[in-house]
Amino acid sequence: MRGASITWALRIYLLLIFTFVFAPIVFSVIFSFNSDRFPTIPLGSFTTEWYAKIFADSEVWEAARNSLIVSLSTCILATILGFCTAYSDYRYNFKFKGPYLALVLLPPTIPLIIMALAMLAWFSKIGVSGQLWSIIIAHSVLTAPFAMAIIRLRLNQIDPNLEPAAWNLGASEWRTMREVIVPFCKPAIFSALFLTAAISFDEFAVAWFVSGLNKTIPVLVLEIVQGNIDPRVNAIGTFVFFISMTLVILAQLFFLARLNTKADPQ
């Protein structure tokens, strides 16, 4: 019976870990509907005041528009870059392939604050700083590795004869890319688009440094929390949470659905 009680203890322990991980998310949602400016227990009354405030705030709309532009452009750019790398890695063996892959995959291992400073300095040096597309360039570098990883995983599942089979039936290499490789990778491409959009949508350190006056939503949140306790943050956070979750769930649906149907009944 000792094994069973240990298992139960571990189960409760896991629950505690989940409580710790999800407490801030859950409280943030609760606080966003709570009337108190400084929420505590017992809770104040239910209100949509904070949502009304952010929807009436032109600064929030401006930031939302910027975030939308940035994450949309980033996800397209990062997915193209990630796709090129994944395909090169799948198809070719070449000298310096190790350094080539490192060049693409390393950015996420460097602390964002360091990337932020480095990009700020470099962008002002080459004259592309303070623009919305400064953030787009920076984010595409930071998120391309994720796109690469997802698409490369998909290419692992391809029958290596599929490309030669298309050539064999009269398709040039370019045509084969369009008719075979891209359709085969489609679920992974969509996953990569959603995932990189979600990461870009939440990134604040680099965006804060290189954005100049063009604030994205997370940068706006950063500025609001630097001031006072302001429950608008919870409302924005809750709103952003549901957008991000939608993107992630879409990415999962596209990718996991395909992974599961991969098994060939042969």
Binding site: F204, P218, G237
Partner: peptide
């Protein structure tokens, strides 16, 4: 995996209040 896609800033702010 979910927390990676929720704003770390908002979660930190939530802890601040908690």
């Amino acid at each position: 995996i979910i927390p990676f896609f929720t704003s770390y800033l908002v979660r930190t702010f939530s802890w601040y209040v908690i």
